Amino acid sequence: MPLTEIPAITGLGLGAAMGLGALLVPEWASGVVRLKADPAKGGGYSEFRATYGGLLFLVHAVALGIVLLTPPAGSALAVMPIAAGWFGAAFGRVVSLLFDRSKLGDTRIIPIWMATEVALGLAIGAPVLQFLG
C-alpha cells in the first residue's frame, strides 16, 4: 500500500463515520450543520438521514473499499470526485462569506469548517499525489 493511501483511508473513514452518525442520529447532524427540521412541512429528519447520513456514509465507505481493495490507480480515480466535493464545500463557504455576510450572524465557525473541509479534501485526494511528478 502506498503511503499516500493512509491519509485517504483516514479521511474516508472519518467521512463514513460522520455519515453513519447522521444516519443513526439525525438530531446530531442537525446540530452540526445548524439546521432544523420543520415539523409543519415534514421530511426534515428524512433529509438529514438521507443527505447527511446515507449519502455521506455510502460514498465514503464505497471509496474506502475501493482504496483498500484495488491497485493504486483505481484508488486515485475513486477518491478524486470525493476530494473535489470537500474542496467544493470549502469553496461554497467562501462564496457565502462574500455574498451572505448580512445573513450569517457569527462567522467565527466558518473558517474552522473551511479548514476541516480542505484538510479532508487533501487527505482523501492524497493517492493522486503518487502519479504527479
Score class of each variant (00 low, 15 high):
residue 70 T to G: 04
residue 82 I to C: 14
residue 74 G to V: 10
residue 26 P to A: 09
residue 116 T to E: 07
residue 29 A to G: 00
residue 52 Y to M: 15
residue 126 A to Q: 09
residue 39 P to I: 09
residue 118 V to I: 15
residue 27 E to L: 12
residue 33 V to R: 00
residue 29 A to D: 02
residue 89 A to P: 00
residue 60 H to F: 13
residue 74 G to S: 12
residue 24 L to W: 07
residue 63 A to V: 04
residue 98 L to R: 14
residue 18 M to E: 04
residue 27 E to F: 02
residue 107 T to M: 05
residue 93 R to Q: 07
residue 110 I to D: 11
residue 115 A to V: 11
residue 117 E to A: 12
residue 60 H to S: 15
residue 19 G to M: 04
residue 57 F to M: 13
residue 42 G to Q: 03
residue 37 A to D: 07
residue 117 E to P: 03
residue 77 L to D: 07
residue 112 I to C: 01
residue 36 K to C: 00
residue 24 L to I: 12
residue 72 P to S: 13
residue 69 L to E: 04
residue 95 V to G: 04
residue 123 A to L: 01
residue 91 F to Q: 00
residue 56 L to C: 00
residue 35 L to G: 02
residue 38 D to G: 09
residue 42 G to M: 05
residue 23 L to H: 04
residue 30 S to H: 05
residue 12 L to Y: 09
residue 37 A to T: 06
residue 115 A to Y: 01
residue 70 T to H: 04
residue 98 L to Y: 12
residue 92 G to Y: 06
residue 83 A to E: 09
residue 13 G to L: 05
residue 30 S to D: 01
residue 72 P to F: 08
residue 84 A to K: 05
residue 107 T to W: 01
residue 95 V to L: 12
residue 12 L to G: 03
residue 117 E to K: 02
residue 81 P to G: 11
residue 54 G to N: 05
residue 87 F to T: 02
residue 81 P to D: 13
residue 88 G to Y: 08
residue 17 A to W: 02
residue 54 G to L: 13
residue 73 A to N: 09
residue 99 F to T: 14
residue 110 I to G: 02
residue 30 S to I: 01
residue 38 D to H: 02
residue 58 L to S: 13
residue 28 W to E: 00
residue 44 G to D: 01
residue 46 S to T: 15
residue 108 R to C: 00
residue 68 L to G: 05
residue 115 A to P: 03
residue 119 A to K: 09
residue 64 L to I: 11
residue 55 L to D: 04
residue 89 A to I: 13
residue 16 A to K: 03
residue 49 R to W: 07
residue 28 W to V: 14
residue 54 G to F: 01
residue 90 A to D: 03
residue 78 A to I: 08
residue 59 V to I: 14
residue 61 A to D: 04
residue 90 A to I: 02
residue 23 L to S: 12
residue 79 V to H: 10
residue 118 V to N: 04
residue 113 W to C: 03
residue 19 G to R: 03
residue 85 G to L: 15
residue 22 A to G: 08
residue 13 G to C: 08
residue 60 H to Y: 07
